[in-house]
Amino acid sequence: MVAKIAFVVAAAVVWTPLTAAAAAADPAPVVMAALGDSISAGFNACGWYVSCTSRSWSAGDDTGVNSHYLRLLALNPEIKGHGLNFAVPGSASADLVAQAQKAVAAKAGYVTILIGAQDACVDDEEKMTPVPVYRARVDRAFAVLATTGAKVFAASIPDVKRLWRLGKDNVVARSFWALGHICPSMLARASSDAKKDRARRERVRDRVRDYNAEMAAACAAYTPGCRSDGGAVFDYPFTLDHISRWDYFHPNADGQKALARATFKTGFPWDATVPLTRESSAAGG
């Protein structure tokens, strides 16, 4: 009996980690889709007030950015040409369901979501999307994606207050924010140190943090499989060198590259040895 128990224990030690590792790894997908707003659309990453999807941190094909799509392409050549981008500049959480429906129609096996900056970046902080409404919209989008069992990566919203701190003493940045009416809930009266303005900025930052918490919770509740970034985007120590000089708000190519790097390592442990094929993907529904 002692020998038998010893054998069982030894087998558990040898095989359990390998089995868990195998179960944790997922076949690299053949179709992926980016959902979200101007950040995922690569807005102002390569031109004057235009989307630049090639430089998207998620589905772009610019080798300098090395997006999720390109990293997956290195694992599974079957995904070539199928890094789709349904993100739209100006989108808020209210637009996420429609984007999720497009991802489902495209049979995306992997979907990235980064949404919420526009829910907080409004004319007046009173117009910010209520947290329960944000969560309900995210849940509806996840329910749409669940119909196909797509793997989902949920990124946190960047810390817009950090951007304010970096640019508040830069006259060019302040000019762009004021003239472009960029995220006024946070960036209006950028040079003001008045108590009411300090309090306003903190309330907006708190709302973004609440959105991030709700996105992470929705991700955790998503049955087929979701990974959140654990706040990697919100906590990322970006500088003005990561920000587009076209508006001093959106990530430039270097910023998109930093987003790709910071998020991919917090995502799924894709298994390069068992790539998904178009045939197996179709067979699985």
Score class of each variant (00 low, 15 high):
D247V: 03
T239V: 13
A253H: 03
A232I: 09
P224H: 14
E214R: 14
Q256M: 12
A221V: 09
A232T: 11
T239E: 14
I243S: 02
L240V: 15
A232G: 04
R209P: 01
Y248V: 07
R261V: 09
K257C: 06
D254I: 10
Y211R: 05
N212L: 01
A260Y: 03
V233N: 00
R261H: 12
V208Q: 09
D235N: 14
H242W: 10
Y222E: 11
D229N: 06
D241L: 13
R261N: 09
A213T: 12
V233P: 01
Y248P: 12
D229E: 10
Y236G: 04
R209H: 02
A213P: 10
V208A: 05
A213R: 10
G230D: 13
M215L: 15
D241N: 15
G225C: 10
D235Q: 10
V208T: 11
H242V: 02
S244N: 08
A220G: 13
P251N: 02
Y222G: 02
N252C: 08
Y222N: 04
V208E: 08
D241F: 09
N252Q: 09
A258P: 07
K257W: 10
V208R: 03
F238V: 13
E214L: 07
D247Y: 01
Y248R: 00
F234T: 05
G225D: 13
D247Q: 02
D241T: 15
W246P: 05
R261I: 04
N212G: 07
W246M: 09
A260T: 05
D229Q: 06
G231M: 04
N212E: 04
